[in-house]
Design a protein around this nucleic acid. Structure first.
Lengths: 188, 188
DNA sequence: CTTCGACATGTCAATACTGACATGTCGAGG
DNA sequence: CCTCGACATGTCAGTATTGACATGTCGAAG
């Protein structure tokens, strides 16, 4: 039931509507950590309100309902964050592809790994300026978090790009080896 | 429907029973990429057999059914791997925790980040010797893949450990700043 | 020969999630 | 004043997933 905790975490930042929360999942949160659509978010908020973890603070225009975290909600969030992590839910289609690359012919694998490397490098180049901007416009003294998530994504992409490059090297080395006619062909 | 593709990928390595496949998910695959229990795997294999992607190759002792990939199955796996990745399913409780750390009090956050850093460092130290062993006992010439997944996990842990350390630094810097009485206290 | 742990496969109810469908409102720009 | 895009909330059927329950067998060690 991690969706619940994701919502608690978002509401810890301040009141928000189901619509606002849905938008939050469109960004890095949904890309790296946890996906959710509004069809799941709205019912969950109702259940959380029933459980006393959140409350409807006010209603706005277009039937907008603004939710706030209750003390119980904040306590539950803290408990979940500080709890023994153990083995949490993991489901990542992109990583799965990386694990299964081994099933491809070397030529296909090379194509795939090159695409991964290119994509990750491009993302790093897209994100770095954004992060640098953040660092310049608000000093170290302003909200220490929020940038953390961005930095996480950035480092993730860097790591994957490096991994893909390493894998390509390894693949190339192994293909070279295969292509060589026999042992003892290299200069002494 | 990534479970299906995970199963196809595992079967690309050779025939296996539902039991064998379940065991595969206990390792790195289940830890980093995709979780699945036997209760989901068995029904899925039946559906895949119906769809002609796999076939029961033989039955062994204890009712063991050995599945093999069909040509259709192999083609489907290749198609899925080489397809435009887009935005695949993402759900990772551990990463979610990292994103929500911002909701904690600085002191709690510090504790959490230290635990993350310690855990990742420990994992790196556990995995590195295993990888080195693999590299020594089978040269670059033997199966180029399989190690790729391990390397991915290793680099992942390294990246997260480094991120946690960076976050701790940033947190400490920001707390120092807060503790300082006012502007203009530093030496000119 | 017995026992026990690993092997091996399954069902079922409850819960989580997705995608399609449905509905209506506010505010800015033309 | 009209129109349209973003705001805003929801239901529902179908599918995926989990956790509890159920059942039985083979092989090795004692």
């Amino acid at each position: 039931m991690s969706l619940r905790h994701a919502l608690l975490g978002l509401l810890a930042d301040g009141p928000a509507s189901g619509y606002d929360l849905t938008r939050s999942f469109d960004g890095d949160l949904g890309r790296y950590a946890w996906q959710a659509g509004h069809t799941r978010i709205y019912p969950e908020l109702v259940k959380m309100a029933d459980a006393g973890l959140v409350a409807v603070e006010s209603t706005g225009p277009r039937g907008r309902k603004s939710y706030v975290l209750t003390d119980d909600g904040r306590a539950e969030l803290r408990r979940w964050l500080l709890d023994p992590p153990e083995q949490g839910a993991v489901r990542n289609e992109t990583v799965l592809r990386m694990f299964l690359v081994q099933a491809l012919e070397p030529e296909d694998a090379r194509r795939y790994l090159e695409a991964v490397a290119d994509h990750c490098t491009a993302e790093v180049e897209r994100l770095r300026p954004v992060m640098d901007d953040l660092d310049e416009h608000e000093g170290v003294d302003t909200l220490p978090f929020g940038r953390l998530a961005g930095e996480y994504g950035l480092r993730q992409y860097e790591a994957v790009a490096a991994w893909a490059a390493w894998s390509l090297d390894r693949l190339a080395a192994s293909q070279e080896q295969d292509a060589r006619p026999a042992v003892g062909n290299a200069p002494a």
